Simulated scan of single mutants.
Amino acid sequence: MGQGRVIWLASLATCPLTALMPAARPGWSLCVGAAGLAALSLGGVVRVVAQSSLQQALTPDRLLGRVSATARFVSWAGIPLGGVLGGVSGAVFGAAATLWTGAVGMTLSALPNLLSPLRSSGAGVVPVPRTPA
């Protein structure tokens, strides 16, 4: 499939399943909520692996460390802020409303990748020629 297609397809296929989490109620439907969380986790891992592979294939060796560190910092820097905002939102609006908002937001987050050149990228990416060590 190629990294480009996997990046948008993983999110598009698994993020809508996060709607199963706020739909869960006490009893057997907790398994449905757990399935939504498992799908989200699977899609996230697949997307991150494909995204990192694409990033490494396109980045020249001399910049690879800087690009990787910057990408990691930018992507991980929002986690504490998201945790605080999620906690406040849950306290103000309730857990279900916060989870529904998150499900919609995560599903919509696939759109920029879906509408980008990644959608029509070929079966793979030609890596940047590496210099011998």
Rank of each mutant, 00 (worst) to 15 (best):
G4R: 00
R66I: 13
G90V: 01
G86T: 14
A57C: 05
S89W: 04
A110I: 03
A50P: 06
T18R: 03
V84A: 14
G87Q: 11
A103P: 05
A103N: 08
A19T: 08
F73Q: 06
L63P: 02
T101Y: 11
P132N: 03
L9P: 01
A133T: 15
P80D: 05
G124H: 03
W100G: 07
L12Q: 09
S120C: 10
M1D: 13
N113M: 15
L64K: 10
G4L: 03
L99E: 00
L111I: 13
S11D: 15
A19S: 08
T18H: 06
L64T: 04
G122Y: 02
G65A: 13
G44T: 07
G86W: 04
G65V: 13
W28P: 00
L99I: 07
P112C: 11
S52P: 00
G65F: 08
S121Q: 14
S52D: 00
A10N: 07
L99S: 00
C15L: 12
A77Q: 03
A39P: 01
A35C: 13
T107I: 07
A38P: 01
S121K: 08
A133Q: 13
V46M: 01
P22Y: 04
L115Y: 01
L58R: 08
L20Y: 06
L118R: 04
G65M: 09
F73R: 02
S11N: 15
S121L: 13
G44Y: 01
S75T: 14
L17Q: 00
R72K: 05
L12W: 08
T70A: 11
G27K: 04
S29D: 01
N113R: 06
P22I: 12
A13C: 10
W76D: 14
P117I: 04
Q3D: 08
I79K: 08
L111K: 03
V45I: 13
A10M: 07
A13E: 03
A110H: 02
S53F: 01
A91W: 12
A10W: 00
R47C: 09
A13P: 01
A103T: 09
L17V: 03
S41E: 06
G33L: 07
G44M: 02
L12E: 10
A77D: 02
L58K: 06
F73C: 07
P132T: 02
A24T: 13
A95M: 10
G124A: 12
G2N: 12
Q51N: 11
D61P: 09
T107A: 06
Q51S: 12
A123E: 06
V92Q: 12
L111S: 07
L64N: 01
L54P: 00
L54K: 00
S121D: 12
S109W: 11
V125M: 04
V125T: 15
G102K: 05
L42R: 07
L30K: 10
P26C: 13
A95W: 11
P80V: 09
T131G: 05
N113T: 10
G83W: 06
V45W: 08
P129L: 03
